[in-house]
Nucleic acid binder design. Structure first.
Length: 275
DNA sequence: GTATGTGTTGAT
DNA sequence: TCAACACATACG
């Protein structure tokens, strides 16, 4: 897709065109997202209609961020049958249930206000901390996954030996040295390092990441077989590795399903918006 | 001055 | 209900 650099250049050319003549307008790029409209300065507005009236949800630098704002409003305004840009919240999972509860206990006006001020995620986080305490849920768990911005690092179709009895997954060298570089130093020449990976359900898996001199390979060992069994991984299945974009650098692992969903409160992922 | 958000209209 | 377009006005 487009790189950030390309997008910025594109936007600034538009901006120049707009500001130069003051009243000379040119065609603005449409958004591929519902509820998102372009702004003359290259940013994106979000809006939703209710009772023949437009409700303005604010302006955003990121097109996808505007789309997520729309999704939040849509789900608050229209409930279960809201049409959304990304995967809608579900009461089936804990994260979704908490978010839905959060939506329900605030008025439409309050939600809109949060969106316009860009404080929605923060407020949701605070609310989650509170309910995590009340329900005895671990805070670590409550804050992970859904509202965390992530980028995909790489994926691999597992081989028969990856899912056999060897209790190891080979990380293609190129990917290991590109994405696990930070830990490679530790992995190489020593006993490796224990890394935590979180799966889509929020469960944390701990694997040893190390370098095998004998085969010149980077591998995940210790603990890997449990993941294979629980996920019922078969040869050819594709697993994906992700990492949060924040300072924590949390790692994620998940099997690629039929359609890997884009998370509502995560940054867009499957459409290549990384960095 | 620029950024934001409204007035308005035609399409779906 | 929706987005495109033009533009008024809020804002720093």
């Amino acid at each position: 897709m487009e790189s950030g650099a390309v997008r910025v250049a594109f936007d600034s050319s538009l901006e120049a065109e707009y500001s130069a003549a003051g009243t000379t307008y040119s065609k603005l790029p449409s958004s591929r997202y519902r509820g998102v409209v372009p702004q003359p300065n290259g940013r994106w507005g979000a809006q939703i209609y209710k009772r023949q009236k437009r409700v303005w949800l604010g302006t955003f630098v990121d097109e996808a961020e505007a789309a997520r704002a729309y999704d939040v409003a849509a789900q608050r305004f229209r409930g279960r049958d809201a049409v959304t840009n990304f995967v809608p919240l579900s009461a089936e999972d804990e994260e979704g249930a908490l978010a839905l509860a959060f939506l329900a206990k605030h008025s439409k006006a309050e939600i809109v206000d949060m969106l316009r001020k860009h404080t929605f995620l923060d407020e949701l986080r605070h609310s989650k901390r509170a309910s995590a305490g009340a329900f005895g849920v671990s805070r670590r768990r409550a804050q992970s996954y859904h509202e965390t911005a992530r980028v995909m690092l790489f994926e691999k179709a597992v081989t028969p030996s990856d899912v056999g009895k060897l209790n190891r997954l080979v990380i293609p060298k190129q990917h290991a040295e590109t994405h696990f570089q930070f830990w490679s130093g530790t992995a190489e020449g020593s006993k490796g390092v224990l890394l935590n990976f979180e799966d889509a359900a929020g469960k944390v898996w701990r694997f040893r990441y190390s370098y095998w001199n004998s085969s010149q390979s980077y591998v995940l060992t210790k603990g890997w077989i449990r993941f294979v069994k629980e996920k019922n991984l078969k040869p050819g299945d594709v697993i994906r590795f992700w990492q949060s974009t924040g300072p924590e650098k949390q790692l994620y692992i998940e099997r690629r399903d039929a359609e890997s969903p884009v998370r509502l409160f995560g940054v867009n992922i499957s459409e290549g918006q990384a960095g």
